[in-house]
Each structure stands twice: as structure tokens, then as C-alpha cells.
Amino acid sequence: MTQLRTVQVLGGGSAGSSAHVRSLASGLVARGVRVTVCAPAELDRLYDYSGAGAHVVPLPRRNDPATVGVLRNACIGADVVHAHGLHASVRAALAVSGGVGLARTPLVTTWHGRPPADGARAGIVRLLERRTVRAAAVVLGTSSELVD
């Protein structure tokens, strides 16, 4: 039997989602799953994903064009990709949708909050949400308000 591998993706890394990923990484590694955490480098210093046994791939906080390529490479061979937050989910969806060896990689997305948006920005947020939902095999929300 081959060892399962998951990639956890963080965007800006709020305290809640960062701690959640630390907990997931620790629990998954303890169960024999290989875990890769893709997150801004400063989050590993704060939450010590590598100390939990995860391999860490540093990502810029914002939308650097190279980010999707870095994510795509990190996700090759993963059994599941789990993105935390809307921005991380959009980037992960782009990464798993276009790479060789990634076409069947399921995407799980967890929304830990909803970005505040008014006017034109609200329309863009809704568009990104729809794009993420269509790409994901599973969408989770951390509150009933988000699920609704």
C-alpha cells in the first residue's frame, strides 16, 4: 500500500486557519500521511508546520504570478489538495486544473471567513467563490453562516 499524501494550502493565513492547518498536519502525520503545507514562510515560523512533520513550500502572501506554478509543482502526486480560505482555494483550483498528473487530484476547500466586499469587489468575490465551488470536490465552512 502506498503512503497517502496531502497538500494543505494557505493564503494570507488568518490565525484560525493557520492553527487549523497546524492541527491537521500534526494529526495526519501521526497517522502516516505525508503532508506538504504551502504557505507564506512567516507562517511556518509562527505555527511550526515543519515541526509537526510537514514539508513546507513557501508561497508569497499575495497573487504573485509564479505562485500557481509553485503550487502546481507541490501538488504533483498528491492524493488530495486542501485549501483554506477563498484566495488559497482560487490559487489551488488553478494549480490542480492545468498540470500533468493533476487532472484527478481532488480539491477540498474550507472557508474560514468571508472577505468583506461592497460594490464591484462584491461581484468579483462572488465570481471567485463560484469558480472555487465548481473546482472543489468538497466545500466546508467553519460556521453555519458560511455554509448557508
Rank of each mutant, 00 (worst) to 15 (best):
V7Y: 04
V7W: 01
Q8S: 11
V9E: 03
V9N: 03
A15H: 09
S17F: 08
S18F: 01
A19P: 09
R22T: 13
R22W: 08
S26G: 06
S26A: 11
G27M: 13
A30Y: 04
R31Q: 14
G32S: 10
V35I: 09
V37W: 00
A41F: 14
A41R: 14
A41E: 15
L43M: 14
D44I: 08
L46G: 05
Y47N: 00
G51W: 12
V57E: 05
P60S: 15
R61T: 13
D64L: 14
D64H: 13
A66I: 09
A66H: 13
V68F: 01
V70S: 07
L71Q: 00
L71R: 01
R72Q: 11
N73V: 13
C75D: 05
V81M: 02
H82P: 05
H87D: 15
V90R: 01
V90D: 01
R91T: 07
R91I: 09
A93F: 03
A93V: 04
A95I: 04
S97M: 06
G98T: 09
G101D: 07
P106A: 07
P106W: 10
T109E: 06
T109G: 06
W111K: 01
P116M: 12
A117D: 10
D118H: 14
R121T: 10
G123P: 03
G123V: 07
G123E: 08
I124S: 08
V125T: 12
L128W: 07
E129R: 02
E129M: 04
R131P: 06
V138M: 13
T142Q: 04
S144P: 11
V147T: 14
